[in-house]
Amino acid sequence: MSTTTKSAKIDRLAELTARNETASGASLWVEAFRRLRRSKMALIGAAIMAVFVVLAIVGPWIAPYSPTAQTWRDEVFVNRGEFVGPRGDNWLGLDHLGRDLFSRLLVGTRQTLLVGVVSTVLAFVVGAVIGGVSGAALAFGGRVGRQIDTVLMRLIDMMLALPSLLLAVSIAAVLGQSLTTVMIAVGVAQIPIFARLLRGSMLAQAGADYVLAARSLGVRRRRIVLAHVLPNSLGPLIVQSTLALATAIIEAAALSYLGLGNPDASQPEWGVMLAQAQRFFDQEPMMAVYPALGIIITSLGFTLLGEAMREALDPRLRS
């Protein structure tokens, strides 16, 4: 009995050793992904996101009715306070114009995701360029670099001084109402965060020993920035972008709520729906609750995933 367990143990050990011997190196990203897969928070976040993305793609096809058809308009009387709640034909009831709320919610997923993703990508790219140039210039550019950094960072500071929603409102007001405007306004408002984040992250990495080692090897400055400093500085930005996506959806909703959203009524969007529903909040609160819940749940999904990614990428927590 004891000999069998012992030999089983030895076999197991040999197996583990052999696996260790043959395993090729795992890069940091692979390792981070492995940790991410083990995290419950990440799984829940990813599941919510997956549902959200699938709905955004197939929403228009699986929606039972057209989101814009006022099929039941003679059943809803706004001025008499008569609304239609959930029933067999319309699972979530009707809106103030007699349109099916469930269909509108489904179809609206796509617009909402589009606004979130496009504005976040915009903020990420522009912010990373400004922050990257600034950080690289300050760390490796000598006196001229310091001046470049100062100019760029004062610009960013000016943007940071304005509350992001106020900034988005001003941009939307200047550019006029359209979907593109909403995306630009929300995206631009997020640029300073990304720029500051990358700059700080790069400065921290620029002082690391491996950068010193690369310099002493005689590696060119451009390669040090692009191959060493930048890849090691991107982690916080990726996490920030998942958080920013949630914020972007909420800010886009806020813009719609303030009447600066997409005026195109043929494409429902959760923020617009929420804005329209607020007029009837006294009589039919559920009309506002559905899109609000949608926004909250998707934001939660992105935030959960972002938090889990932050933990997975944190080198201090590496096992």
């Binding site: 940091l28 020993d209 080692a213 002493s216 005689g218 060493h228 890849p231």
Partner: peptide, 25 residues
């Protein structure tokens, strides 16, 4: 100076910190 650097090299105190974590050997 950069071109001369291969003649003078350095070994660092912190073995892990002086290696880029994203580069293989």
């Amino acid at each position: 100076m950069r071109r001369t650097r291969h003649r003078l090299q350095m070994v660092f105190q912190d073995p892990l910190g002086s290696l880029n974590p994203r580069q293989n050997i």
